[in-house]
Computed example of a mutant assay.
Amino acid sequence: MLRHARQLVENAERIETLANYFTQGWEPEIRIAMDTIFPEDLMLSVLNAFASEHPQIRITLVESALSGTDEALLRHEADLVIGGHVPPGFTGHFLLNIQFLAVAHPSHPLHHNDAPLTLDDLKSHRQLVVKDSGSRRLDAGC
């Protein structure tokens, strides 16, 4: 009986804490759409810190690409978006620069070029394409 009573008290305390959060304007869930170019380890570190301070708030993280990130915001599928630009009509803050690098195996012909690589150098070789997760499909070659 004592064990059940303790569980009931713990549940009541959780409900009281949740009610406190809601009266302060906190939502029970935060839905985040994050573009795949954003560093995952950084995001997971931030989410871990947030969850430690606010364990009652559920976080849903969806990875998206290109226009899919904007669409998640426009379709009200996300409360917060981390992407490459701010969609018209919304406000945003700059977080960080991300540098893209062309990579190839050391035996690839691009490694034998002494001059800095240009877009024309890259065009004649195989590309990996990031598929757009949005309905507009603005695929980007890498």
Score class of each variant (00 low, 15 high):
R3G: 02
I57C: 00
I57E: 02
S67D: 08
L8C: 09
R14E: 10
P88K: 09
E27P: 00
L73F: 05
A115H: 15
L80M: 05
E27D: 09
F38N: 00
E13A: 06
P28R: 14
H105R: 13
I32D: 05
L61Y: 12
R14M: 08
T69Q: 01
V62M: 08
Q56H: 07
P55G: 04
N48Y: 04
M34S: 13
P88G: 01
L44E: 14
P88E: 12
E27A: 15
H54W: 06
L101K: 15
E29I: 11
L73N: 00
A140G: 03
S64M: 08
P39A: 01
E16M: 05
S52F: 07
I15Q: 06
K131A: 10
P55M: 06
R58Y: 03
F94Y: 15
G134D: 06
L122T: 11
I30K: 09
H111A: 15
H85F: 04
V129E: 05
P109H: 00
H105G: 02
T17M: 08
S133G: 10
G84T: 13
L18W: 03
V86L: 01
V86H: 04
E71C: 06
P116N: 14
T17C: 03
R3T: 12
H76V: 01
E71W: 08
A78F: 03
T17G: 05
L18G: 06
G92S: 08
S52Y: 07
L101E: 13
H105A: 14
L73M: 12
G134Y: 02
A49I: 09
Q7W: 08
R58K: 15
H125W: 13
E53S: 13
Y21E: 09
L47Q: 02
H125M: 03
L122M: 14
M43C: 14
H4A: 11
R14C: 00
S107F: 03
S45V: 04
W26F: 15
E53G: 12
